[in-house]
Amino acid sequence: MKLIIGNKNYSSWSLRGWLACKQSGLHFEELTVPIYGDDWDQRKIEGELAPSHGKVPILWDGEAVVWDSLAIVDYLADKVGRDRFWPKPDDARAMARSMVAEMHSSYLPLRRSLPMNVRARVEGAQVDDEVRGDIVRILTLWAEARARFGGGGPFLFGTFSAADVFYAPVVSRFLTYGVGVPGFAQAYMQAVWEHEWMQQWVSAAESEDWVIEQFEVPAT
Rank of each mutant, 00 (worst) to 15 (best):
V131E: 06
Q126D: 07
D68C: 04
I45S: 14
R132S: 13
F184H: 15
P169I: 01
K2I: 00
G180E: 05
F174C: 05
L59V: 02
M99T: 11
G37T: 03
V211H: 11
G152W: 04
R84F: 00
S207H: 14
A168M: 08
G150R: 08
P51H: 11
R132W: 07
V171E: 13
F85R: 12
L156N: 11
R121S: 05
L114N: 08
T176C: 07
L3C: 11
S14Q: 04
E194D: 14
V65H: 09
T140N: 15
A168V: 06
D164E: 00
D91E: 13
S14N: 05
S69C: 01
P115M: 01
W86S: 06
E30Y: 06
S14E: 02
Y107A: 03
S161L: 02
Q23N: 10
L31E: 14
D209I: 06
G17W: 05
V65A: 11
G151F: 02
D74I: 00
V211P: 09
F160T: 02
R112H: 04
V56K: 15
A77D: 06
L31S: 10
V127G: 10
V127N: 10
A143K: 15
W210K: 15
I35H: 11
E63P: 12
V127M: 10
P87H: 10
E216V: 03
L26N: 10
Y167H: 13
W197A: 04
M103F: 04
P87E: 06
V211R: 15
W40H: 11
D164T: 05
S12A: 13
D90G: 09
L26M: 12
L110C: 08
E48G: 04
I138K: 13
A125Y: 09
Q200T: 12
V33K: 12
P154M: 07
I5A: 09
A125K: 14
D164A: 01
I5Q: 08
L26F: 01
R148E: 01
G151V: 01
P169M: 00
Y177V: 06
M99G: 12
V127W: 04
A168K: 13
R146D: 05
L139T: 03
W18K: 15
D41E: 07
E194F: 02
P87Q: 12
K22V: 03
H195I: 00
M95Y: 09
K79F: 02
V217W: 05
S98F: 01
D78P: 04
G25E: 10
P89E: 00
Y36F: 13
E46V: 11
G17H: 07
F149S: 06
A185Q: 03
G152S: 11
L70E: 12
G151Q: 09
F184D: 12
L26S: 07
G37H: 11
D39W: 04
Y167A: 01
E206Q: 15
A64Q: 14
V131P: 03
G180K: 10
V217E: 08
V179R: 07
L59M: 03
W18P: 10
A163T: 13
R132G: 05
V217Q: 14
A94P: 02
Q23Y: 00
S105I: 00
R173L: 00
E196D: 03
A120T: 06
K88E: 01
R84N: 08
R137V: 00
V136Y: 14
H27V: 09
A64S: 13
Y36M: 12
G124M: 06
P87L: 03
M95K: 15
